[in-house]
C-alpha cells in the first residue's frame, strides 16, 4: 500500500466511519508525523479526527476552508487543526466559522463581562496591519520601507495611547 501523500510504503492505516461513510487513510510514518497523527509513538486520535472531519467538507465549509486572514495569513483549516487563531482580526474575519464553535464551547457568542476602562479600542486593525507590513518589509530586507512603516506605526500608536 502506498502513502497517499508521498508514495512511499504506507505503514499507518486508519479506517474511520465519518457521517455514515467508511473512509480509509494510508500514510507513511513520516507523513503521519508531519500531520501530527503520531505523537510519542501513539496515534493522536483527537487530531486525526479533527483533520479528517475538517476535510469532509460541505459546500459552505469548503468556502470557509479557502479563507486566509489578510493580516496574519492563517487559514481557517489551520486553525481547526491546531486549535489556535493567528491574530485578533481572525475573530472578525472567520466569524461565520467561529460562531458555531463558540456556541458549542460557551453556549453564547456575545461577551457580557468587563470592558476596558478606556473603552473599546479603535483602529486596532490598522495598527495590526501596519505591524505585519513592517514585518514583511524587514524580512524582505526592504529597510527603507521598514523605516517609513516604523515611523508611521509610532505615530499611530502615540495617537492611540493619548486617547
Amino acid at each position: 500500500m502506498k502513502c497517499e501523500s508521498c508514495g512511499a510504503p504506507a505503514t499507518v492505516h486508519q479506517t474511520m466511519l465519518v457521517a455514515g461513510q467508511q473512509q480509509q487513510w494510508h500514510l507513511c510514518r513520516r507523513c503521519a508525523e508531519e500531520r501530527n497523527w503520531i505523537q510519542n509513538n501513539e496515534l493522536n486520535l483527537p487530531n486525526i479526527l479533527q483533520q479528517v472531519i475538517g476535510q469532509h467538507l460541505t459546500p459552505e465549509m469548503d468556502e470557509l476552508a479557502r479563507l486566509i486572514c489578510p493580516v496574519c495569513g492563517i487559514r481557517f483549516m489551520e486553525f481547526r487543526a491546531q486549535g489556535r487563531l493567528g491574530c485578533p482580526h481572525d475573530y472578525e474575519f472567520f466569524r461565520v466559522g467561529l460562531e458555531p464553535i463558540l456556541h458549542r464551547l460557551h453556549r453564547s457568542t456575545r461577551h457580557r463581562g468587563k470592558v476596558p476602562q478606556a473603552g473599546v479600542p479603535q483602529n486596532t486593525l490598522e495598527l495590526l496591519s501596519l505591524r505585519q507590513r513592517l514585518r514583511a518589509a524587514v524580512e524582505a530586507e526592504q529597510f527603507h520601507e521598514a523605516a517609513v512603516l516604523r515611523d508611521l506605526l509610532r505615530q499611530r500608536e502615540a495617537g492611540h495611547e493619548s486617547g
Binding site: G83, R84, L85, P88, Y91, E92, L98, I101, L102, L105, H106, S108, T109, R110, H111, R112, G113, K114, V115, P116, V120, P121, T124
Partner: peptide, 18 residues
Amino acid sequence: AFSEEFGYLTACPTNVGT
C-alpha cells in the same frame, strides 16, 4: 485586543470573552 462583541480576544476560543 478587545472587541465589543467577543470581549477580550485570545489565541484559543476556549478563553475568549472574559
